[in-house]
Design a protein around this nucleic acid. Sequence first.
DNA 1: CCAATATTGAGGTACGTGCCTCATGACCTA
DNA 2: TAGGTCATGAGGCACGTACCTCAATATTGG
Lengths: 375, 375
Amino acid sequence: MRGNGALDLLGRSANCATEQEETAAGDSVSDEAARRRVTVHDVARAAGVSLATVDRVLNGRPGVRSATAEKVEEAIKTLGFSRDLNASLMARSRDLSVVFFIPDGSNEFMDALAEAVSRRAGPALSDRMHLSTQRIRALDTGALAAGLDALDPRSCDCAVIVTSEEPDILAAVEAATRRGIAVMTLVSDLPGSNRRHFIGIDNVAAGRTAASLLGRFLPQGGTVAVIAGSLHLRDHLERLEGFRQILSADFSTIDLLGPFEGHDERQETEALVANLLAENPKLSGIYNLGAGNAGLVSALKISGRAGNLRVIAHELTAPTREGLRNGAVDVVLDQNPDGEIREAIAAARALALGTSRTVATDPIEIGIFLRDNLR
Amino acid sequence: MRGNGALDLLGRSANCATEQEETAAGDSVSDEAARRRVTVHDVARAAGVSLATVDRVLNGRPGVRSATAEKVEEAIKTLGFSRDLNASLMARSRDLSVVFFIPDGSNEFMDALAEAVSRRAGPALSDRMHLSTQRIRALDTGALAAGLDALDPRSCDCAVIVTSEEPDILAAVEAATRRGIAVMTLVSDLPGSNRRHFIGIDNVAAGRTAASLLGRFLPQGGTVAVIAGSLHLRDHLERLEGFRQILSADFSTIDLLGPFEGHDERQETEALVANLLAENPKLSGIYNLGAGNAGLVSALKISGRAGNLRVIAHELTAPTREGLRNGAVDVVLDQNPDGEIREAIAAARALALGTSRTVATDPIEIGIFLRDNLR
DNA sequence: CCAATATTGAGGTACGTGCCTCATGACCTA
DNA sequence: TAGGTCATGAGGCACGTACCTCAATATTGG
C-alpha cells in the first residue's frame, strides 16, 4: 500500500500488453463486455420522446397521452429494456421491503421459516432488501387479513403469506394487490386468488415418495398406519393421495391402516400412536404426514418398539432430528424452509422489476433425510 | 395512467394518514428504515480524512501513509461499513465476471453443471454479473492450469474450478490469487491451496446414506456390490468410506462385494455389471458410487433382473432418470449441480466485497431421488 | 380565435462508489 | 534553503434511475 507508485506505472504498461492478449485470446469476453446495457436513455431515443416522458411511463405517473405511452412501451419491448433494480432502489434511497406473515403457535416448521427469514435479513440488506416477519396466530384468518389490510404500499412492496384457503384472505389479497403490493403464497397455495407467485413443494410427490420408500423398506409386506394432522388441510390431503396412489399401484402386499387425525398436536399424536402400537402388535410401519412429531417419537420410545418398525415423518425439526438420531424415525421428508425463503426473496426481487405478470423460481426440492445425511 | 391527477392528490393525503398508522403500529419498520446506510462519507468523517483517502485505502491505491490507512480501517470496522457492491459495479460500469472451468468429455454431470451456468447467465446479468464457461478436457490439468494462467484480473474477478489434486493446479491457483483473482473449487476440494471457498456435498455422508438406504431395503441381509469410477478419486474414496462405515456398524447381515472399478465409462461399467450379475445369481444390491450409469442400467435391463435387486447410483442424469423410471434403479443420490452453481454465484459476490477472508454459503444438500419425486 | 389545460421537453439533484485532476502542504535531501 | 517527493484534500464526472421544477408546446373548449 506504500511506495508502489513505480509499481503503478509498471502495472499500467503491463495492462496495455495484456489487453492485446485478451482481445486476441478471448473474443467472446470482449464482445459481450462491449454490448452495453440498455438504459432509459436508449428507450427515450428509440421512442422519440424525452427522458422525462419515459420516466413518467415507467413509474406510472400521470400526464402522458396513451399514444405516447404506447410508443414508449413498444420501444421498451423492442430494446428489451429492463429497469436496473439496484440503480432504482439506490435512486429512491429506499429498500425493497418484504413482509412475511408466518403462523405462530407450536409448529416448529413455522419457527424454522421465521428463523430462515431473520437469518437472511442481514445479508439481504446489502442487496437493499428489508425483510420483516409478522407472526400470526395459527389459523386466525381474521388476523392475517387484518395484517394484509394494514400494509402501506409505501413501506411494503411484497407480502408473503402462509395460509389456508379462506374467503376473507382471498379478499385481503385482492385488496393488497390493488394497492400495489405483490402477494406471494408459501407452503400452501391459494388458487383462484391473484397472488403473484407460489413457493412450495409438490405434496402429492412427497406422499408418493413416502410410499415408495416404505414399500422398499418392507419387501415382505405388512401393515402401515397413516397419521394426518387434519383431513381438512390441502397439503395433508395431497400427501395422502400420493401415498395411497403408489401403495396400491406398486406395493399390494402392504395394508394401509387409517388415516388417523392427530391434529398436529404433540399430545394427541402421542396418545394416538401409543394406542396404535398397543392394538397392533404386528404393525410394520407408520407414515406421519402431519406435524406432532414430538408425540410420535415419544410414543415410539416408550413402547420400546422404536427401530422395529419403519417410520417416515415430515419436516426436519428438533423432534424429528432426535427421532432420526435415536433410530425411532427412518426417514424425514423435508420441505426445506430455508430454500423456500431464499426463493421467496428472489421472487420478490423479480416481482419488483414488474416486467412480467408471472415469475419463475427454482423449484423447491423435497429433502429426504436419514440419520446419515443430517445437515 | 391518464387523468389521475386528482387520484394522485388523494393518494398523497391518504398516505399522510397511513404514515401515522404505520408509526404507531410497526415501530420496528420505521426504526430500521430510519437507520441510514453507512457510506464512504461516514467513514471519511469518522476517520477524520477526506473521501479521496478513504477511496485510496478501499481500493488499494498507493499514496496513503500506513498510520492514516489504519485510522480508516478502524473507522470501517467501528461503523461496520461495507462497500455497496451494486453501486461499486455501477460506478465502474463493469460487470463482476466469473469464469467457470468445467471438465469436458462424456460426463453428463459436468454437462449439467455447464448448463446450470448458462441458465443463470441471463438473469445474473441484471445483477451485473457476467458468467462464462470454459470446458477443459477431463483430467487435463495442464489445460486447466493454462486457462487459469491466462486469466486477466481486469476481465475476470473470480474463477471456479472442478479439479483433482495436482501440483500444477495448486501453483496456478496460487498465481491467480496473487494476481487478484479469487479462485473457488467446485465438487471436489483442493486442500492446501489458497482457494477462497469450496462448494460441494459431503461425500462421506453420501456414502453413509447409500448404505443406510440399502440396509433398510434389505432387512433379510444379502450381498451388495460396490462399483467406483476410480479409487484414485477423492470423492469416490470418500463415498466408499462412508458406505463401509455404516454397513459394518449397522447392517452386519449385508456382505460387501468389491469395490470394482468401472472408470466412469459406459462400456466398461456395462461389462462389469453384466459379469457381476452372471457370476452372482443371488446378488441383492448394487451401489455405483461413480459414473458410467448408462452401462449399469443397460446391463441390468439385458440381464432381465432389473427391479429384482436394489440399486443406488449417483447424479440425476439422463441414464439414471431412465433407470428410475423403468425400475432398474431405486435411488439416485444427486449433488444438485444447479444449487452448486447458485451458491458459487452467491459466493463470488460475497468474495467481491472482499470484507473477510472466508465466505459463508448455504450448504449443498445431497438430493435423494426416487421415481416418485423426480423433478 | 383565445384562454385554459394537458402534454412534453430540458435539465437539475440525489443515491453510493470509482477514478481522475489539480492544488496544497509536509517532509526529506543535497 | 531550494528542489524534490510524498501525503492528503477538494472537487468533478460517471454509472442508471427517481423525482422535481420550469418552460415550451399541443390540444381542447368555449
